[in-house]
Design a protein around this nucleic acid. Sequence first.
DNA 1: CTGAAAGCGCTAACAA
DNA 2: TTGTTAGCGCTTTCAG
Lengths: 354, 354
Amino acid sequence: MIVNLLYWAPEEAEEKMAKPPNIHSVAARAGVSTATVSKVVNRINVGVSEATRQRVEDAIRDIGYRPNRVGRGLRKLRRSIIGMAIVDVSPSFLADPFTTNLVAGLSNHLSTQGFGLLLHGIRPHELKSSFLVRESEVDALCVTLSGSRRERLGYIKLLSELGQPFVAFQDQPVAAADACFVRQDDRAGAVSLARHILQKRRVKRAVMFISELSWPAIEQRVSGFRQVLGSKRVALDLVRCDETRAESIAAAAESCLARAALPDVFIGQNDQVALTVMQVLKRHDIRVPGDVGVSGFNAFPFSGFADPPLTTARSPAYELGQLGAEVILDRLETGHFRQKEHVLAVDLVAGSSV
Amino acid sequence: MIVNLLYWAPEEAEEKMAKPPNIHSVAARAGVSTATVSKVVNRINVGVSEATRQRVEDAIRDIGYRPNRVGRGLRKLRRSIIGMAIVDVSPSFLADPFTTNLVAGLSNHLSTQGFGLLLHGIRPHELKSSFLVRESEVDALCVTLSGSRRERLGYIKLLSELGQPFVAFQDQPVAAADACFVRQDDRAGAVSLARHILQKRRVKRAVMFISELSWPAIEQRVSGFRQVLGSKRVALDLVRCDETRAESIAAAAESCLARAALPDVFIGQNDQVALTVMQVLKRHDIRVPGDVGVSGFNAFPFSGFADPPLTTARSPAYELGQLGAEVILDRLETGHFRQKEHVLAVDLVAGSSV
DNA sequence: CTGAAAGCGCTAACAA
DNA sequence: TTGTTAGCGCTTTCAG
């Protein structure tokens, strides 16, 4: 089972505890000063002869020198690390595809600029005891918050007092501090989805499944649906469930079916919720879209392969992450945010579930 | 739209550029030495009078001091950060629920010990140019690799030469360097899934959908299925597709249906693949499990709500992450890995899709 | 073109 | 109980 890689140096084991090479080791080996090594490492091309550069590079390779970013960070007062705090009640804070795409976009773009992403999932009440807040570790923070508007304002105030720039994703802008708000247009997305639904079918009553925990983006979606549906005198009932657990969604759907007449359309706060509701309907032999329409939100890659393909809205999650990275790096560069807010469009994905 | 939080200090804006308080500011304000401040900050209770401690703590609060982890890291040669490199061809390297659960478990456990997680998704050929490898940034590395066995051995060799301990998830152990291999028992999981399938139905031919890119865990699953099926003279055909795109999975399934007779069972390398295949079957009015069986792997939360509920295997992804964190922190503490390998069990989830 | 030296924020050994 | 000081690895200014 265990493979031996014979070509590995056996002294590896003894070496383990040895101090790793530093800039002085390189300087000594190349017969130059540490200042010169630093210039070579940082590709500062003025004032280093080609011969010297070559000697230094050879020395670096020979002894396997890796520049220590901590020393550099201390000297430059720049860590080249951005913190990402995901405030969520669930320990599995990366469960939603929206979040993972956002993080991927953020991380990838930061990487291209030599920045790292320090990831931290925290429960709401732990934010102020997180080392990202209590100690000074990163150049800037990114956050996704949750909870009531009041709670979120509290978190934003807390972050503002850190004297560190931050980007808040999917939250409403606050004229405060050194922050930028990057989000998708959930409200407009809901509006176009609602209009599409009304165009497709006659609707008197709609039921929307939303999470127990309050998220700003969800509030926006509700508000968008309410605006369009309300203007046409369509009733919109909200049903709360733990949207991270399929059992909870299913139970909510079951009790909804048991308690009242079938509405004309079920709206999921996201695709996972909508698909789970569709499974429950199928078990009851209720046809979609024949008997009832179903709509999702934040299309995830597999929703198009549901039966029938889900009508939903495409979230620019990856792009939000990328944009957040650009915005924060620009802030570090220039000393200020160019804009307080960025909003990306949400596109309708017309399936055949309504 | 923009809310003003009136209670915020207006000098915030001017303060923005000011140097943040450091240990000297606190010392000066409290009228003590920096050594004393350090003791208070680090909760070293010997040799600090209660009165002094109180003064220092007041000063810290008054000026909003946050200890700088870079300075501390430099001094202690300990950064309290673990790097996680996810080697994947896809820019959306967090797409798989397995990976996100693993990362969540890792990150959460590290957090409890005051460690941060530096996340980096990289394409295979970029590993050696990643700053996690080129520069010295973290105390230890965690990796999930992909590619052929030969390529993976190359990556492991590269990591070994860094003189830094690392944990490789979901890979085969290699007697090398300062590493520990943490994985789930994919092979045994596949074996029990295969036995369950054979018990449930007569099988002459099985088709398994796997990714184009080679992953060690997938190889193990194939090997497990092959062992059991082969011993009963059941043919096992492999079909490759881009498992991150539902279109690619569906196309592979379609061409499989077009080209040959219906097999007795379709096996997905994971649940997303299996569920997508099930959708295609449904479109063709092929009944599951009546006409054909379907099995998944690495149960994800919503698989139980498929129609019919998917037969699959439960992956201990979150626990793998937690275990990896424990193992790496213990290594940093003690100077060595207690074990070269940890293997967690994969449990059968009997749905009704076979 | 190259080197000497100061200092980023912090901790720990030692001195008072 | 408290303070002084050296130095972690690096960059940058300034002098040579």
